[in-house]
Design a protein around this nucleic acid. Structure first.
Length: 112
DNA sequence: CGATTGACGTACG
DNA sequence: TCGTACGCCAATC
């Protein structure tokens, strides 16, 4: 019984809510959870996202600069990049093109 | 139970 | 403008 819904579960939930073709940041998610300072926890949470079901689109989560910080965790290749491009998000030098436009802020667009 | 870690972010030099 | 330092806070060792 999920009485111990962890910070992680909360993170996973928000990440799943990210619309296709959009991206967000660790800080934005952290802020949505009420722990703006804990952006690192969000990233750390994603560490186990690969074992989470349903699938957690962690590839839509980047750092505040729009860089695919965790692309290395998606595989040895540019799998994260491939996933993003498949959604219409172009990536150049491990950076999201037009990141500012594609940025999806849960605090702003997601309503509880 | 204490120390270390981390897919970040902000501040400072 | 770029590089380095520190802080946050929960999870893991």
């Amino acid at each position: 019984m999920p009485t111990d819904y962890s910070f992680f579960e909360n993170v996973y939930d928000v990440v799943r809510l990210i619309p296709k073709g959009r991206v967000t940041t660790y800080g934005a998610i952290a802020a949505y959870l009420g722990a703006k300072k804990s952006a690192r926890l969000v990233g750390y949470a994603m560490n186990g996202s690969h074992k989470i079901v349903p699938y957690v689109p962690a590839h839509r989560v980047v750092n505040r600069v729009g860089v695919l910080s965790g692309k290395h965790f998606f595989g040895l290749g540019d799998e994260m990049k491939e996933l993003l491009e498949a959604e219409g998000i172009w990536v150049k030098n491990d950076k999201v093109i037009a990141f500012k436009e594609l940025f999806w802020d849960p605090n702003k667009e997601l309503i509880l």
